[in-house]
Nucleic acid binder design. Structure first.
Length: 919
RNA sequence: GCGAGGGUAGCCAAGCCAGGUCCAAGGCGACAGACUCAAGAUCUGUUGGCGUAGGCCAUCGCCGGUUCAAAUCCGGCCCCUCGCACCA
């Protein structure tokens, strides 16, 4: 039994010792492929290998087509993940230590991982040695790089100066999560920075200013359009409120609100206190509707939420309705939105759901959601709403908000949808950054040019090609720098800030050209100034030395990128900025040519296999258990690249078996010693057909279709060849050499091993992908006829329950083929009708009754199938021995001649469909 | 909400763009047989229903339409999944 592990190691050593992965300018045609480099966030899992494997298969395929292939890779070290891992190690987080140990990280390394840079170094090595090399990837390992090296930082700074020159860097206010202790934090589902509330959203409350004596009662709402239905205000009479001076206004709001707003408005100053009791039972003045409304006490006016002051819209807010009912309905609800199925929506839903009191939070929340959805999507503003009458609620909401903001009746307060707590224990708030730097992706010219370019690109799948222009249109300005303890490049115009990780990963494929020279020590970061990058990437200025010139030549040879391959998570972030930055900075001849998006390997129940949460099989375990070639074939073949696939070890096991089977068929074929036979012709055509399918599929990177032809269809046809008595040693050898070369991009280790057994001298990885020769359709058709006839015989045996000793095959007479020919040529001219056909048939010397019956039958058939005239008699005669053996019976094949026909079957014979009688 | 994708046999998953070769590839599972003391592995066959002659009927989320012909094209409906920005 073969040992996958040994074979893998043997060939990997040979490949890497011979450095066959190095990109060299030799053949004058090149192919540049890379995958979106992985973030350094810990160990990867089997899911990640899907995309990487696609890239390697495509790179290997292109190499075998005679391209100079450059397939570089690097590491995205910037941003949070490495820092977060280092922090966890530093604070001896039990989970992280367990995780490291489970993945056999040595103790002395664990100690070092308190330093984020060590994290980057350690995991870079793991990715290369344990994942990529173990999978046999022919990545150009001389070009490895990461995003925190000195040279890379110089490159990014150059890029930002270019963006600035193009007027694509702008400043404007921005609101971002912030911890008063730790500074800026990331609020995301991975919860690396926060210990609670990672899924919180930033809500924009509209704060509407109600006049109260000489002060302002700021009511916070998410539904500004309901201002028209306000009947009263709610203030909590068990709470003390703050009086704060904002600008020249005096606001009454909760203490919590003041502490939040301090981070969002410029000048806010506490000037006094006022208890809720002193406010309730008085009146305040509502803007827009311009009338006085009473202020009532309410416990649900929560000081923790927004301003702590709430306006009451009892017709449309279940909370308000029920609170008013509790205190005896001192005011009548004012309905302002018409929505079918409701008169007074809040009242009716409260009654329908049987909500008893203000304490029934869960039901009230649900009721609020239901009413909001129905009103927002299906409601219209009614006659209470002045100028907004008749407008759809979702339009009116924006318009009313903007009008109030414009007239200084309202302002915006931002708040999380739920409590967010920093890892340090402090509550995270939202802070205004007055002059945040953005990359101006909204720029009209840039957007337009990017969209135009995207239309010319090769983008897979095609659905994404159609989606991409819309994403480019939608893509807004991106805050591109931030402060805090992140890894990254200092922003060149303000070095206290660091460029954030999406923005530093857009033009990076260009850097793979330079990284080789950096790695070889031929150029130092110090030397890489703007003149250097201007010269190398833009061709501006002069080369300072020979190395500069060499790098420029390399760049011109390899660029642009032909395929950037990445997971579907990149669809709305990385890929758009990848295109836009190239369009913004590079000359058109270097704009990227293609994008390939792959979907994920998921865990059961559709969950993404998460890096942080582990769960899936670690890569080293999986490659040992199943073998790398089995895994590679699994990724290529298990499903369309454009759907998520659920990880299932059992399935990979099947691919392992498939490889065993191919291996043992290969060995059987090698041992065959025989001469030519009739079936040889068929196997040649059939084999060529499969290679053709594979080649054409690969043109569109349809790895699944190609691998299906190579690993399944060819396997089947070789078996059939043997079954049909094929054993031509010379031919088998020739086909095996082609077959093994066709396998090589997908399962390179096993292919090399086979290639060696076939006497191949060089690496099969460096051979040419097989060409296909002539495909003779009549032979394929004839064999298909034979197989179908065999099926029919089986069917008859089964239904009639007989075990025949003699089988009679009656082939269609010549005149039926002649009529068929006529029908086919009529069909070609679009003139195939019964009448036209019979006019022609009349000219022939045949039995008109039989002929007309037959003509009627074939009219339908001719429209479906392509008919090629084949010599059925000859083909069956040649297969006679085979048929006898298969059915253990005597055969008689009858053409036109007189024959034995006791059941009168002969008249049913049609082209491709012989009549059968057995006894 | 905005944007995108999907629903195929017991299960996974092709086919759909370019309608007919679809009684729907391939795999898993199940059943039967071969090999074996046995189990496993492997190999062969069967796996929607009916059928004593190769046939007939049904099926691709649901309803309708176009067509000689629909899993495939068009319209409507139901259900599911994903992304929505400072997280990579």
């Amino acid at each position: 039994m073969m040992n996958f592990g040994e074979i893998e190691q043997k060939w990997q050593k040979k490949w890497f010792d011979s450095r066959i992965y190095e990109a060299k300018k030799q053949k004058g045609k090149k192919f540049f492929i890379h995958f979106a480099y992985p973030g350094i966030s810990g160990y990867l899992h089997v899911g990640h290998m899907r995309g990487f494997t696609y890239a390697d298969i495509i790179a290997r395929y292109k190499r075998m087509l005679g391209y100079d292939v450059i397939f570089p890779a690097g590491f995205h070290a910037t941003g949070l993940p490495a820092v977060s891992l280092a922090k966890k190690v530093a604070r001896k987080d039990k989970e992280i230590l367990k995780y490291l140990r489970q993945n056999s990280c040595p103790e002395d390394v664990i100690k070092k991982l308190e330093d984020p840079i060590e994290v980057v170094k350690y995991f870079s090595r793991i990715y290369v040695e344990d994942y990529w090399k173990k999978f046999g990837f022919l990545i150009d390992y001389t070009r490895l790089m990461d995003t925190v090296s000195d040279g890379y930082k110089k490159f990014i700074q150059w890029q930002f100066r270019k963006l600035n020159e193009k007027k694509l860097l702008i400043q404007k206010p921005h609101f971002a999560p912030y911890c008063p202790n730790c500074g800026p934090v990331a609020v995301d589902k991975s919860e690396t920075d926060v210990s609670e509330g990672g899924d919180a959203e930033i809500l924009e409350f509209v704060v509407i200013k109600f006049r109260f004596e000489d002060k302002i009662l700021p009511a916070a709402t998410l539904r500004p359009e309901t201002i028209f239905g306000v009947t009263n205000m709610w203030v909590n009479d068990e709470e003390e409120y703050i009086i704060a001076k904002i600008g020249d206004e005096k606001w009454i709001l909760s203490e919590k609100a003041v502490s939040k707003l301090k981070y969002q408005v410029d000048d806010i100053e506490v000037v006094g206190k006022i208890h809720g009791k002193e406010i309730v039972r008085k009146k305040c003045f509502a803007p827009i509707i311009n009338k006085n409304v009473p202020i009532f006490p309410a416990k649900f006016a929560n000081p923790d939420i927004a301003t702590g002051i709430v306006m009451s819209v009892p017709a449309h807010a279940p909370y308000d309705y029920i609170a008013l009912r509790d205190i005896g309905m001192p005011v009548e609800p004012i309905v302002i939105i018409n929505v079918s199925g409701y008169e007074v929506p809040a009242k009716e839903i409260v009654e329908k759901m049987g909500i008893k009191s203000q304490e029934d939070f869960e039901k009230l929340e649900e009721a609020t959601q239901i009413i909001y959805k129905e009103e927002f999507h299906a409601g219209t503003m009614n006659e209470e709403c002045n100028d907004f009458k008749g407008m759809k609620v979702n339009d009116a909401k924006e318009k009313i908000k903007n009008e109030m903001l414009k007239n200084n009746i309202a302002t915006i307060m931002r708040e999380f949808s739920k409590r967010v707590v920093c890892r340090c224990g402090e509550e995270v708030i939202i802070r205004k950054i007055p002059k945040q730097w953005f990359i101006k992706y909204s720029d009209e010219i840039l957007t337009h040019e990017s969209k135009e370019w995207a239309k010319k690109m090769n983008i897979y799948p095609k659905e994404y090609k159609e989606e991409l222009p819309k994403i480019l249109e939608w893509y807004g300005d991106r805050a591109c720098i931030r402060q805090g303890s992140w890894l990254g490049t200092p922003f060149p115009f303000d070095e206290k800030w660091v460029i954030e990780p999406i923005s530093d990963s857009t033009l990076y494929p260009t850097y793979y050209i330079i990284s080789k020279y950096v790695n070889e020590g031929k150029i130092k970061a110090d030397e890489m100034d703007d003149k250097f990058f201007d010269y190398v990437f833009l061709g501006n200025g002069k080369a300072k030395n020979g190395i500069w010139k060499e790098i420029r030549e390399e760049f011109e040879y390899w660029y642009p990128v032909d395929i950037n391959l990445g997971g579907k998570e990149h669809k709305t972030v990385h890929f758009p900025v990848f295109i836009m930055n190239h369009v913004a900075i590079m000359p058109e001849k270097f704009f990227p040519k293609g994008i390939f998006v792959n979907w994920w390997i998921t865990q059961k129940e559709g969950m993404k296999i998460s890096k942080s949460k582990g769960g899936a099989e670690p890569i080293p375990d999986a490659s040992e258990k199943y073998g790398v070639d089995a895994l590679r074939l699994y990724y290529a073949h298990v499903g369309s690249p454009f759907v998520d696939v659920e990880w299932d070890g059992e399935v990979v096991e099947q691919y392992k078996k498939r490889i065993f089977r191919i291996w043992s068929l290969f060995e059987n074929l090698l041992e065959m010693e025989g001469e030519e036979s009739k079936i040889d012709e068929w196997v040649i055509s059939s084999f060529n057909e499969k290679i053709k399918i594979a080649r054409e599929a690969m043109k569109e990177y349809e790895l699944r279709k190609a691998s299906n032809a190579i690993f399944f269809e060819i396997y089947n046809l070789m078996n059939w060849y043997i079954k049909r008595g094929g054993k031509n040693k010379r031919l088998i050898n020739e086909l095996l050499k082609k077959w093994v070369r066709a396998m090589a991009p997908f399962t390179p280790h096993i292919a090399e091993e086979m290639w060696e057994k076939l006497g191949g001298k060089n690496f099969v990885s460096l051979e040419e992908f097989p060409e296909y020769g002539d495909i003779n359709p009549s032979i394929l058709k004839a064999e298909e006829l034979l197989i179908k006839t065999m099926d029919d015989i089986d069917e008859i045996k089964k239904v009639a329950k007989i075990e025949p000793e003699k089988i009679y095959i009656y082939l269609a007479p010549k005149w039926k083929w002649d009529i068929l020919d006529i029908a086919v040529s009529l069909e070609k001219n679009g003139e195939l009708t019964m009448k036209n056909l019979m006019n022609e048939v009349k000219k022939m010397n045949v039995n008109m009754k039989e002929a007309s019956q037959y003509a009627g039958k074939i009219i339908q058939e001719v429209k479906k199938e392509k008919f090629i005239r084949i010599d059925e008699k000859e083909y069956f005669e040649n297969a006679l021995d085979f048929l006898k053996k298969e059915f253990n019976a005597e055969f008689r094949i009858y053409g036109e001649e007189e024959c034995y026909d006791p059941a009168n079957k002969r008249k049913f014979a049609m082209p491709y469909k012989p009549a059968i009688y057995m006894e």
